[in-house]
Amino acid sequence: MAVSFLGRSEVSDLCLGKPPLRPLSESATVAEALAALKSSDESFISVWNKEGGGCVGKVCMVDVVCYLCKEESVLSPSSALKEPVSNVLSKVPGLVMHLEPYSSLLEAINLILQGAQNLVVPIIPTKKSGISRRKQHLQKSSTINSHNGCEFCWLTQEDVIRFLLGSIGLFTPLPALSIDTLGIINSDVLAIDYYSPASSALRAISNSLTQQTSVAIVDSDGTFIGEISPFNLACCDETVAAAIATLSAGDLMAYIDCGGPPEDLIRVVKARLKEKNLENMLQEFTISSPFDSDTLVSSSSSSDEESSIRTPARPGRHKRSYSYSTRMVRKAEAVVCHPKSSLVAVMIQAIAHRVNYLWVIEDDCSLIGIVTFSSILKVFREYLETI
């Protein structure tokens, strides 16, 4: 049943209702990519080859922020924003892959397990009278690899997990097994000490984006305190680069929390930028609260006490919501589970909180590891090979 289900399910079944991608040329500047991200309802913008060769990657606010945190960018933010967006794109190959709409779900899972994060799929036009679905597909084949004259959407790991969850009964008894029993808890996590400089976590933040995970914040005993989440960073704006350059990892965690940065941390960031002779960052950017609805303009000549800075919430951005099933870990909200949690419970919890991973902790909050959507999909793929 499960094998036939995956074999007959087409990726087009997962594309229903998906909005078309907004293409951004790879020749666009970082500033143009930034503007596109701020005006988009999506966390990622697709980047396309200007010669019509297809989607070459994706960019999100975290990519831009990590780029602006580089030493050369910090010294001259205005120059960095004028560079081509190709400088920001991940150099890891295969993160974005094209896939035909009539490909099977099994093919999609195989590509994800090979490293694909987003699958670019042509949007099939609405069926017209007298024209079969297959015929429409053939008519579009000449433009299938070009964004000119053909709209695309993309599928994510979350889309596939959500689809599998809708038919989870076909995979019995797999869903009831614990993640510990299934052996999908990865103990090799990205982590940083609470008091370490946030700038020292830049590589880990960049890697967590590539791996679609997060960076754990731990104390000296290895107790899990919270996380620096790419999801939360993506809901900020480019000015969070100033916070990364000046705050500790623990303070950055508070700065990017969904409530917006506290005023005292904003003052700390501004003061430390001045101490480090990085006032050009104040001149280029307005240090902002990413979720507030009011706007107050500041300048680098203002005193710390006189400057309160708020910027409007970016339209269409999600605010992560936490249900009562989410553990509160030392006042830092993070989506966590127990090693004895069942596979289906972990899937539901991750889907509910719009994350691609769950931290696995013991009752004393000691960090065991992480479980990801890709590891879950690997379990489903291996299960099919045994039946």
Rank of each mutant, 00 (worst) to 15 (best):
K128V: 14
W48S: 10
R134H: 09
E306G: 12
I370F: 05
P77W: 04
D221M: 15
Q212S: 15
A216M: 05
E279F: 01
Y195M: 13
L367Q: 01
V59A: 10
E83G: 11
T311A: 12
N277R: 15
G169K: 13
G183P: 11
T223V: 13
A31H: 07
P315C: 03
I256T: 14
S220G: 01
K18V: 10
A245D: 06
L265C: 06
S79P: 01
K91F: 01
I309P: 06
F152E: 01
L202V: 10
W48P: 02
K18A: 10
A198L: 12
H98E: 09
I123S: 03
S12M: 02
G17L: 02
D257Y: 08
S103D: 00
E305F: 10
I217T: 04
G260E: 05
S341G: 07
F5K: 07
L170P: 05
P230I: 07
S103V: 09
P173R: 02
L190M: 12
S200G: 00
L34Q: 14
L164G: 04
I184G: 00
Y255W: 15
D363T: 03
P312T: 08
L155C: 00
R8A: 01
G169H: 13
Y322N: 01
F231G: 05
W154Q: 09
I225P: 01
S196P: 05
I351F: 02
E10A: 07
F5D: 02
S289N: 15
I370A: 06
E362Q: 14
I309D: 09
K58I: 04
S206W: 11
Q114T: 12
E279K: 10
A234T: 09
I168E: 00
S39Q: 14
T286P: 01
C235H: 14
L21H: 04
E279N: 07
R133C: 00
R267G: 12
E72N: 14
E71G: 02
N277G: 03
P312L: 12
R22Y: 02
A334F: 10
A116Q: 12
S288K: 13
S132F: 11
E284Q: 04
F373C: 14
Q139V: 06
D219I: 04
I185D: 04
E26A: 11
L34M: 10
K276A: 03
A36M: 12
L37K: 14
S25Q: 12
A191Y: 09
S300F: 02
